[in-house]
Design a protein around this nucleic acid. Structure first.
Lengths: 234, 234
DNA sequence: TCAAAACCTGACCACTTGGTCAAATTTAAT
DNA sequence: ATTAAATTTGACCAAGTGGTCAGGTTTTGA
């Protein structure tokens, strides 16, 4: 935000997730590698310690770099947090593509739910950072919620209404349907320890996620007046 | 935990919620009043700032007391956090009483869900503190999860199985059914701002909570193979 | 009335935290 | 080879942070 931030922390974008594999010589490869290292470490520390509990020192240590290096690339802790969130918001919107007017309601909804559960299993830290951000009032995410997310939901609401008008599902309140789906699926990331305690395992097993997905798919399909059969949409 | 904690912070229990109304003269009324003040303030600060982000100074200010006073009554920040959680865990277990073998499945489940939604509306801060605690790994709540909560769920699982055996509902995975119910209902407290952004209101209205409850009740009842009609269990 | 117990609180402290910076080292491009 | 740009990092700092404590005031019970 101020001009004191990161001497050269712009341009070139980072791409973040994949480390490509090849170029260890192209210009900017150091920046890309280190930013990715820091972002990964930051996601974990923010997820498990909360925003305020995450220290730049802890992030630096987890990334295997000196603290000053973290500030070199991201300037402030807040900017780093922002970058982590940015990464996560991308994931958020992706999977909704399956819900289109001409797809089969039951399989589209089931596939979406399964994708969300898989996501909870594979990237629980991302889900936790996001949950934390919401709980604390979405101070860094207001715009995303009011624009991107809201518009996307409005769009998908139209799909649900079209389905309903065509008699392909019973009418449902779209916002609440999505809320329930998100809540239920993300629960298996955010409340992992609670579910773990209930099933009597420290870590959830593949079986648990499968059963979770089945249960959610069943409730949602039936809730929309659709027939449910195990495994649909997988 | 250590012996340095709160010089006289034991005995007499606090009762917390109600301020009775009458006795401004009975012994210990100061302790009761101030502990309640601090607990309320602490719940809000822990909910909105997270554990680490909550400062004893902020809690003291919100309670209208000097910081040293907070330490006088609760010793350490951790002990205070513990006390706040204790208060909240009580709420957690209460409402499940409705689920008994000889109650009517549809109305019992519906009433439970409605109670949870009401709870999300009336005490969102409690829900947020709890969610935060889960996300961060339930370090202060492990025992509760593995004992009280797990046993209660096991008990209620038997009820669901009995219902199923008697043909009163379709068989369901109890842990996942409860997980979905909890996730969906608490979502309206924890992710309040997200739902708010989607419905286009800063604060959720009565209508929103009602629709939310209807939606969840509908999905859950149908998911259990039960007929749903608006307003059931309210 | 009076002493013991409970309560109050400003001042203080050791430690942590995010952030800075200047001096080095490495990389990139000519 | 040379030099400008990018990167690295130990040392440092000001602003908090949780927690303590001594010396006070108020409540309580006999």
């Amino acid at each position: 935000m101020s001009e004191t931030v990161a001497k050269g922390a712009d341009a070139k974008e980072n791409g973040a997730k994949d480390s490509g594999g090849k170029d260890d010589s192209s210009p900017g490869h150091i920046r890309i590698k280190n930013r990715a290292l820091i972002l990964t470490a930051a996601e974990e520390v923010f997820a498990t310690q909360g925003y305020r509990g995450a220290t730049t020192a802890a992030i630096a240590q987890k990334a295997g770099l000196p603290k000053a290096n973290v500030h070199y690339y991201f300037g402030t802790k807040e900017a780093l947090y922002h970058a982590v969130l940015e990464d996560i918001l991308g994931l958020w919107l992706g999977e909704l593509d399956r819900i289109t007017e001409d797809s089969e309601p039951a399989t589209a909804l089931a596939a979406y739910i399964r994708a969300k559960v898989r996501h909870s299993r594979e990237r629980p830290l991302a889900s936790k950072v996001y949950a934390n951000e919401m709980i604390r009032g979405a101070r860094h995410t207001r715009d995303f919620l009011k624009n991107e997310l809201r518009n996307l939901v409005k769009e998908k609401a139209k799909v649900l209404e079209a389905w309903a008008k065509a008699g392909r599902i019973e009418p449902v309140e779209p916002i609440h349907l999505f809320s329930v789906i998100w809540a239920a699926t993300q629960h298996y990331a955010d409340f992992e320890v609670q579910v773990g305690a209930l099933v009597g395992r420290r870590q959830l097993a593949a079986k648990d996620y499968d059963e979770a997905a089945e249960t959610v798919v069943r409730l949602v399909l039936r809730g929309c007046g659709l027939p449910y059969q195990p495994g649909i949409g997988s």
